Simulated assay, not measured.
Amino acid sequence: MTSDEQWDDVSFVISSRYRVDTLQRLAEGPATPSLISDETGLSIAHISRALQELRDSDLVTLLVSEDRRKGRVYGVTDAGREVWDTIEAQNMIDAE
């Protein structure tokens, strides 16, 4: 991944609190949308949208069969891990 591509991804993630919170939670380990929702206090609709956006950007991946409708477990990709590490290292997380 080039530096420009990585910074584009960093910018994409930090432009949404929902993407930040979702990626931050997945950086800790795999989780279901409902678990992320419970732990972050964000609505399941926001989490689902953030997961889809992060997945479209190849920052997270679905760890179970695409056919599963319940119990879908997501994890962070290597690219997602690099982006999250950059966000943390550069202190780009807004304080709540």
Rank of each mutant, 00 (worst) to 15 (best):
S15H: 13
G29D: 02
E53A: 02
R55H: 10
P30I: 02
E82P: 01
S48F: 01
S43V: 03
L23S: 04
P30D: 09
S15I: 02
R69S: 12
T77L: 06
L35V: 14
L23D: 06
R17P: 02
V76C: 03
A95D: 12
D58P: 00
T22R: 08
D38N: 15
R49T: 05
M1T: 03
I14Q: 07
A45I: 09
S16G: 05
D78P: 00
R69E: 13
S11C: 07
E82D: 15
S3G: 00
S37F: 06
L54K: 06
A31E: 15
R19D: 02
V73T: 11
I47A: 04
G41H: 05
P33D: 04
Y74F: 15
T2V: 01
I87P: 05
T22S: 09
E96Q: 12
V64M: 04
S15A: 15
E39G: 07
D8P: 01
R68H: 10
K70D: 09
S57D: 08
Q24I: 00
T40P: 06
E39C: 07
L51P: 05
A50Q: 04
D38F: 15
S11G: 10
R72G: 00
E28Q: 13
D4K: 14
L35F: 08
D9N: 14
M1H: 06
L54T: 05
T2D: 14
A27V: 00
Q90E: 15
D94I: 11
D85A: 10
I36Q: 02
V76Q: 06
D56C: 00
T77V: 08
K70S: 11
A89R: 13
A45G: 07
A45K: 12
R19K: 15
S48T: 14
Q90L: 13
R68N: 08
D9A: 12
T77S: 11
N91R: 14
W84G: 04
E39I: 03
E66R: 11
V64E: 12
T61F: 06
R68C: 01
E82T: 13
P33I: 02
M92Y: 11
L42N: 11
A79S: 12
S57H: 14
V64W: 00
D8S: 13
H46K: 07
D56Y: 08
S57F: 01
R72N: 08
E88P: 02
E82A: 13
R72M: 03
R25A: 09
S3N: 10
P33G: 08
P30Q: 09
S11Q: 12
L54C: 00
A89W: 01
V83P: 04
H46N: 12
T77K: 02
H46Q: 11
S48C: 02
D38A: 14
Q6V: 14
A50D: 07
D58N: 13
S37D: 07
D58V: 00
V83R: 01
D58A: 10
I47C: 05
K70N: 10
T22E: 03
G71V: 05
E88I: 13
F12W: 08
L63Y: 04
A31L: 09
S57I: 01
T2R: 10
D94F: 10
W7D: 09
L63T: 03
